[in-house]
Design a protein around this nucleic acid. Structure first.
Length: 370
DNA sequence: GAGACGTGGGT
DNA sequence: TACCCAAGTCT
């Protein structure tokens, strides 16, 4: 696949690292090569932009300065620290791995890529990043940047959306990576991918690496990388319930698996799950919803539609459209059949809210003011 | 190996 | 609007 001569590889490394030395981004997790710092930043940066991560990283390090502190953190505090960052299993796996390091490894980090991948939440990319940056191992760290950069440099036609393609890129990078400065090499590729060689609006003509960019030299850079398109999010309709009593709002603990798992949220009922005819009107749906609450939870509610447009929220694979309903209950109703509890608004700040939950709350307040 | 898993930014 | 993209991993 790669046809570069040893001389060209050496020139590539030298040009790249010289550029990196002069132009590397000054980021909070680059103050040292502490594996804990590298690790937390890499997890946060998965599918997330640098500017989004910076404040989260800084707060996280103040709250949990060490692997031990993270291992000891309580669930609520951890999720509050991750609130709004998304892909929440990252946070749970982070703590799981911290506990693995403390108990299984007696506080000693595995220092190889293979060893690091044994830890929860650490896959081939993150293992390569930690191994190279923190432990100076000459291994590839293939993220979206590396895929994009090397696909263009070498005009690699493999579909980067396919899992098997990773191996090809790891092989290529294994041949060109600097054995002296593998961590800096990998980070330089990321900085290159985030500056001159972005996905759209790239500026390869100004890039320090343009002489090595075969796609650019051939005028076909717009054809790389090759990547199959994502599927569009599936629309899902919900009723969102803001049920009040003198004890606050009724919250439901979401299931342990699936989207937004384990969060305490305003109850959501999928419209498609209501036992009504497909062409039922809204009145029939609300009636069915009230019946379902009575039968499933032994709760007799009378819902009222809240004014305003439904709340919408788009995830990677689903597009939620939530019609908000309100209801009021006496504080002494029996909640023993309902997987939830009353939470006063004054205590909301002690719970981690997901974005969609926050939108529901904002919309409710706005409508109530009227 | 395809699909699930959040959110914010850009066009 | 409706995409696509951003330092991926797990099942």
């Amino acid at each position: 696949m790669i046809t570069w001569s040893p001389e060209k590889i050496a020139a590539f490394q030298k040009t790249l690292l010289n550029w990196y030395d002069q132009n590397k981004r000054d980021l909070p997790w680059r103050k040292d090569h502490d594996p804990y710092h590298v690790w937390v930043s890499e997890i946060m940066l998965q599918q997330t932009q640098v500017q989004t991560v910076i404040p989260y990283y800084q707060r996280f390090m103040k709250l949990f300065p060490t692997v031990q502190a993270l291992a000891d953190a309580d669930e609520t505090q951890l999720m509050k620290a991750w609130e709004g960052l998304g892909y929440y299993s990252r946070a749970r796996n982070l703590q799981k791995a911290a506990r693995q390091i403390i108990t299984d490894y007696h506080g000693e980090w595995p220092k190889t890529k293979a060893g690091l991948q044994e830890l929860s939440g650490i896959g081939p990319y993150t293992a390569g990043a930690i191994a190279s940056i923190a432990f100076n191992q000459p291994v590839a760290a293939v993220d979206g940047n590396a895929f994009r950069v090397f696909a263009r440099l070498l005009k690699i036609d493999a579909d980067i959306a396919k899992p098997q393609t990773r191996r090809l890129f790891e092989n290529v990078i294994g041949r060109v990576i600097s054995k002296d400065r593998p961590g800096d090499f990998n980070q330089a590729i990321m900085d290159l991918g985030a500056s001159y060689m972005t996905a759209t609006n790239y500026h390869s003509a100004d890039s320090p690496m343009k002489a090595f960019n075969q796609a650019y030299l051939d005028g076909v850079e717009d054809q790389y990388p090759v990547k199959t398109k994502n599927k569009r999010p599936v629309p899902v309709a919900y009723y969102g319930l803001l049920i009040t009593s003198n004890n606050g709002f009724l919250f439901e603990k979401r299931p342990a698996h699936g989207i937004l798992s384990n969060f305490w949220m305003f109850p959501l009922v999928k419209v498609a799950d209501l036992k009504v005819a497909k062409d039922a009107d809204e009145g029939q749906q609300l009636n069915a919803l009230e019946n379902q609450f009575l039968e499933t939870y032994r709760l007799k509610i009378h819902v009222t539609k809240l004014g305003g447009q439904p709340v919408t929220h788009t995830f990677t694979h689903q597009k939620w459209r939530i019609t908000l309903l309100t209801a009021n209950l006496a504080e002494h109703v029996d909640l023993s059949y309902f997987p939830g509890k009353w939470i006063p608004a004054s205590a909301f700040k002690t719970f981690a809210f997901t974005k969609v939950q926050d939108k529901m709350w904002q919309r409710y307040q706005k409508q109530i003011e009227k």
